[in-house]
Design a protein around this nucleic acid. Structure first.
Lengths: 333, 333
DNA sequence: TTGAAAGCGCTAACAG
DNA sequence: CTGTTAGCGCTTTCAA
C-alpha cells in the first residue's frame, strides 16, 4: 500500500494538518516536529498525492496541447516549444493529436475540460470554433496557436504572420519575373492557408496580375499528397513557372514528382517551400523556404496561456513575422 | 460556478448516487428518472469531474511518455505512435521531454508517479536506471522504449533490434569492399548506440577485420554535431571510406560538412544513415538508410504498457527488426 | 504552534 | 430500483 499523509502523521505523532504544513511551508512548525516529519518523508519516500491536492485546490498545474497533425515538423517544433516552456514553469503537458478530425477535437476539449486542466493550447482542425464559446464563456483558459479564427473573440492567439508569409513568398517570385505561380496548400478552411492566399493575392495585385483560383491545389500535408498535387496542377496548367508549397512534407513530395517529370528546379519551375526543415539545405536543389519560428510560437503560446490563466480578459493576437531563406530552388541566385 | 453531480441530483430530486448510476450505467434506473437526469445533464452541459473520479477510483486513464530528446524525427514518430494508440484505448497522454538530463528524468518520474498516472513509457537518457526500482518494486507500471538496460529486470521493453541494425549496416558496407568504416553516434552510454556498435564489431569479425575505437565519434544528435563529428573524424583518419551515421539530423550535418570538404558521396566516402526521414530520397545524393519502425515501436509500447498494467509480471523485451533502404549514398547501385 | 473537522466531487457498498 | 453513507488524500478555516 502506498503511504499517505495520514501514515506519516501517525508515525510522527502529529496531526495530518501539521504534516501538510511542513510540506507546503504554510505555517511555522517547531523545528523538532519539522525534522521528525521530514525524516519520515525521506524514509518512506513519500510524495503527496497530487490528484487529491488538485481536487482540493482546483488547479492541476497541467496544461494541454491539442494539435491537428502530429508528424508535421512545424507542429512538432511547436510542441517542443510549448513543452519546454511548460516544464520551465513547473507545468505538465498533456498532448493530444486530433488528426484534423473536428469532431474528435471537440470531444477532446470536453474531456480535457472535465479533467480540471488549467488551460488548453489549441491548434484547431478548422475555423469552425463556435463550440469553444461554451468553455471560454466560463473563463476556461484557451489559447489558439498557429491557426485561428476571428470568431473566437475573447481568445488570445499566437500565430505566424501568414498574410506576410504569402505576400513575401509571392513577391519574391514575382520580382524574379514569374507570372503564373501555383500554390499547394495542405488543408482548406484554416487561417494559415487562407491568410497566405490573401497575401499572395495582394502581391499579385501590386503587380497588376489577376488571381486565378485554379492555380491553387490541395496537397493534404503529406509527401504523397504533395506529389499528387503537382501532378494534377501541372496537368491543368502546364505553363506554371513557379510553385509555392505550404508544408515541408508536401515540398518533398512535390520535388520527387517534378524529378519524375524530368522537370528541372528552378530552371523549369521555381519553388519556394515553407518551414525550416533540417534537410532543406542538402536537398537537390537546396530549397528556398519562407519560415516562421515554430518553437518560438510554441513558447510564446504557453506564456500567453499563463497570462490568460491569471487574467481572463487577456486576448491579444501575437503575430510573429516570417523570414525568407534564399537557396537555389527559387532560381534567383 | 461549475455544476456538479450534487446540483443535478437536487434539481432532478433524486440522490446523487442515482445520478452517478445513470451516468456510468452501473445500475438500472427507472426510465422516467433516467430521462430527467439526462435532460438536466444536457441542459447544464454537465461533465463529471474526472479528478474526483480519479481520486476515488485510483486510476486516471492517463499514461505518460517521457522522452529524452524531442525534436528528433525518430522520437517524434514514436510519440505519434504512442499517442495514437493511447487515444484509441481511451487514454490521455502526458508528454515530457528530459533533454537527455538524467536528474530531470528522475525528478519527472517522481512527479508523474505522484500524479496517479496509470503508467509510464520511458525512453531514458542513460542506462543508469537504478532509481526506477523504487517504482517498479511497488508495481508501478513502467515500460522502456527505444533505449533499455538489462538492469531494469522486471521492466518490459520495446525497442528496435539495434545489434542487427549495426550488423546489417556494417555488413552492407563491408560487402562492398569498405574496410575503414567510421561511425557517428548521438549519445553515449545508451543501448541504441552500444548495441549498434556491438553489431558493427560482429560484422567486422566476420570479415576478420579489427575494431578500432578511434573510428567512433560522438555527434550529439544535432545537425551541427554531425558536421563537427565528420570534421574531427576525418581529421583523425583521412583514410575512412565509409560512414555510418546513427541519426537523421547528424546525417544532414555530415553531408553538409562533406560537401564543404568537396568530398563526393559515395565516390569518396560512402554513407549509410539511420531512420526513414521524409527527405532521404530527394537529398543529393539520395541516402541509403537503415530503418527501424518508430511509430510501430510506439504503438507496441503502449500495448505493452496496458499488458503491464493488467499483469504486473509481464516483462517481455520486444525487439523489432530493422530494414535497409538502399539508395545512392552507399555506392552499391 | 498545533489539531479537529469540514469538504473538494465522485463512487460503491450496503440497506431498504 | 433508490438512497444513505463512508471514504479517496489532501488543504484550510477555526478554535484551542
Amino acid at each position: 500500500m502506498k503511504v499517505t499523509m495520514k501514515d506519516i502523521a501517525k508515525e510522527a505523532q502529529v496531526s495530518i494538518a501539521t504534516v501538510s504544513h511542513v510540506i507546503n511551508g504554510t505555517k511555522h512548525i517547531t523545528e523538532n516536529k519539522q525534522k521528525k516529519i521530514m525524516n519520515l518523508i525521506q524514509k518512506y519516500n513519500y510524495i503527496p498525492n497530487s490528484t487529491a491536492k488538485n481536487l482540493r485546490q482546483k488547479t492541476t498545474k497541467t496544461a494541454a496541447m491539442v494539435v491537428s497533425s502530429l508528424p508535421d515538423s512545424f507542429v512538432t517544433e511547436m510542441v517542443y516549444g510549448v513543452e519546454e516552456r511548460a516544464r520551465e514553469m513547473g507545468y505538465n503537458l498533456l498532448l493530444v493529436n486530433t488528426n484534423e478530425v473536428k469532431d474528435y477535437e471537440e470531444e477532446t476539449i470536453s474531456v480535457l475540460h472535465s479533467r480540471m486542466i488549467d488551460g488548453i493550447i489549441l491548434s484547431p482542425a478548422s475555423s469552425d470554433l463556435e463550440y469553444l464559446n461554451k468553455y471560454t464563456s466560463e473563463d476556461f483558459p484557451v489559447v489558439l496557436v498557429n491557426r485561428y479564427t476571428d470568431l473566437a473573440k475573447n481568445t488570445p492567439k499566437v500565430t505566424g504572420d501568414n498574410f506576410q508569409t504569402g505576400y513575401d513568398a509571392a513577391f519574391h517570385l514575382l520580382k524574379h519575373g514569374h507570372k503564373k505561380i501555383g500554390m499547394i496548400y495542405g488543408v482548406s478552411n484554416v487561417s494559415t492557408t487562407d491568410e497566405r492566399i490573401k497575401g499572395y493575392k495582394e502581391a499579385l495585385k501590386n503587380y497588376n496580375l489577376p488571381f486565378n483560383e485554379s492555380y491553387m491545389e490541395l496537397g493534404h500535408a503529406t509527401v504523397a499528397g504533395g506529389a499528387a498535387a503537382v501532378k494534377s496542377l501541372l496537368t491543368r496548367h502546364n505553363d506554371i513557372s513557379a510553385l509555392f508549397v505550404l508544408n515541408d512534407l508536401m515540398t518533398i513530395g512535390a520535388i520527387s514528382q517534378m524529378k519524375e517529370f524530368l522537370l528541372k528546379i528552378p530552371e523549369d519551375i521555381a519553388l519556394i517551400g515553407f518551414g525550416d526543415f533540417a534537410s532543406a539545405s542538402i536537398v537537390d536543389p537546396p530549397i528556398t523556404n519562407i519560415v516562421q519560428p515554430p518553437a518560438t510560437i510554441g513558447k510564446t503560446a504557453f506564456d500567453v496561456l499563463l497570462s490568460k490563466i491569471h487574467n481572463p480578459n487577456y486576448k491579444k493576437h501575437i503575430e510573429l513575422p516570417p523570414s525568407l531563406i534564399v537557396r537555389k530552388s527559387c532560381g534567383c541566385v
